[in-house]
Simulated assay, not measured.
Amino acid sequence: MADDAFLRIEGVSKTFGSFQAVRDVSLSVSRGEIFALLGGSGCGKTTLLRMLAGFEKPSTGRIYLDGKDMAGVPPWERPVHMMFQSYALFPHMTVEANIAYGLKHEAISKTDRAARVREMLDLVQLTPFAARKPHQISGGQRQRVALARALARQPKLLLLDEPLAALDKKLREHTQFELMSIQERTGVTFIVVTHDQEEAMTLADRIAVMDRGEVRQVGSPTEIYEFPTNRFVASFIGSITSFEAEVRGRTDGLLRLHIPDFGTEVLARDVPSVGEGQKVTLALRPEKIVISKLPAPGTNAVEGVVKDLAYFGKDSLYRITLPSGALVQAHAVNARRGDEGARVADWDDRVWLSFDPASAIVLEA
Rank of each mutant, 00 (worst) to 15 (best):
Q329E: 09
V29M: 00
V22H: 08
M180F: 03
G249T: 09
E340W: 13
L103S: 06
E214T: 14
A131H: 11
R31D: 01
I259N: 01
E178A: 08
G61E: 01
M201L: 10
E265F: 05
K170Y: 05
A301H: 04
A326I: 05
A53E: 03
H258T: 08
S26L: 05
K170R: 06
R113C: 10
L126N: 00
S273C: 15
L49M: 09
R153Q: 14
N230S: 15
L123D: 03
T175V: 07
D161A: 02
V247N: 13
I137L: 06
E106M: 14
V266E: 01
M120E: 00
I182F: 09
V80C: 06
D168A: 09
W76H: 05
G42W: 04
G219T: 07
P260Y: 14
S28Q: 04
G298I: 09
M120N: 01
E199Y: 08
V266R: 00
E340C: 10
L37H: 03
D205M: 06
E199K: 01
G44I: 02
G54F: 09
G39K: 01
G275K: 15
Q197C: 07
T264F: 15
D168N: 12
Q278H: 11
G338H: 10
L267C: 03
G102K: 04
H195E: 12
A130K: 09
P260Q: 08
N300K: 05
E173L: 04
Y101W: 11
I9C: 02
T60V: 15
R132Q: 11
E244N: 10
A150N: 04
M1N: 14
H135E: 14
A345R: 00
M51T: 06
L322E: 03
L267V: 10
P221V: 08
S13L: 08
S41L: 08
R132G: 05
P155Q: 03
E173F: 00
V209K: 00
D349C: 09
G263P: 07
D205A: 04
R23Y: 13
V145R: 01
R216K: 11
R50Y: 11
V192P: 00
S242W: 07
L203F: 13
D308N: 05
W352M: 10
L317G: 08
F19V: 12
H258E: 08
I289Q: 02
K133V: 07
S242C: 14
A166D: 08
L65C: 01
P128C: 07
A165D: 03
T194G: 02
R350G: 09
V271R: 03
T94Y: 07
D356S: 11
E223F: 11
T46I: 12
R269Q: 14
P128A: 10
S239H: 13
L121I: 11
G253H: 14
A97Q: 15
V271W: 06
H92K: 12
V145H: 00
G219H: 05
V124F: 05
H331L: 13
T111L: 11
S273F: 15
P163G: 05
R78F: 04
G44F: 01
P58C: 02
L294F: 12
K57R: 09
E56K: 00
